[in-house]
């Protein structure tokens, strides 16, 4: 009987585990007025990776070698929103991510974070805060550090 009650309490406590991750933040804000949300699932990443011809355009970047291992992409762009900022900050404070870079320039505050497991990057988070807008981008997946650096270098080459 005591064990049953303990199980019930643990089930209730586990609700707190839903608190802050990129998916829950995206769920919370994507449907709100004035918020632009983009979600790309792991299945869509696999489909992208299997596309025979990617329409790269003039300065296109071929990301296909790297994106098959991605699980999710979450983007939120909204007018400055204190609640969203707070939730994003809580996600950063959760300890899952470590800061890779921070740039403050011309009123823009840009922070880039990664989460790692050994040599694999399992998550990538970028937060951009200017006085009028807030941008939240999060990517989940399993990509080696080396591949991630190639990915960024490839994009920088064509930027």
């Amino acid at each position: 009987m005591k064990k049953t009650i303990i199980v019930a309490v643990l089930a209730l406590l586990s609700m707190s585990a839903f608190a802050q991750d990129a998916k829950s933040i995206y769920n919370k804000y994507s449907g709100q007025e004035g918020v632009t949300g983009v979600y790309i699932s792991g299945s869509m990443f696999k489909m992208m990776g299997e596309m025979p011809e990617i329409p790269l355009g003039e300065d296109g970047t071929d990301l296909t070698p790297y994106i098959k291992a991605m699980d999710g992409f979450y983007l939120l762009n909204a007018p400055h929103n204190d609640a969203m900022v707070k939730d994003a900050e809580n996600l950063v404070k959760s300890g899952k991510y470590e800061m890779m870079m921070e740039v403050t320039d011309e009123g823009d505050h840009v922070r880039i974070f990664t989460s790692k497991k050994g040599n694999m990057i399992t998550g990538f988070l970028i937060l951009v805060d200017d006085s009028s807008e807030y941008l939240f981008i999060c990517m989940d997946g399993q990509i080696s550090e080396e591949d991630f650096q190639k990915l960024i270098a490839e994009a920088m080459k064509n930027a």
Binding site: I40, M48, M51, I54, M101, V103, D105, V110, A155, M156
Partner: peptide, 22 residues
């Protein structure tokens, strides 16, 4: 998937611009 790819490419270009800026 082509549209999703275009969004992803735009995002990575933006990220690389921010890194370059830094």
């Amino acid at each position: 998937p082509a549209l999703a790819y275009a969004q992803l490419e735009e995002t990575f270009t933006y990220i690389s611009n921010q890194i370059s800026r830094g």
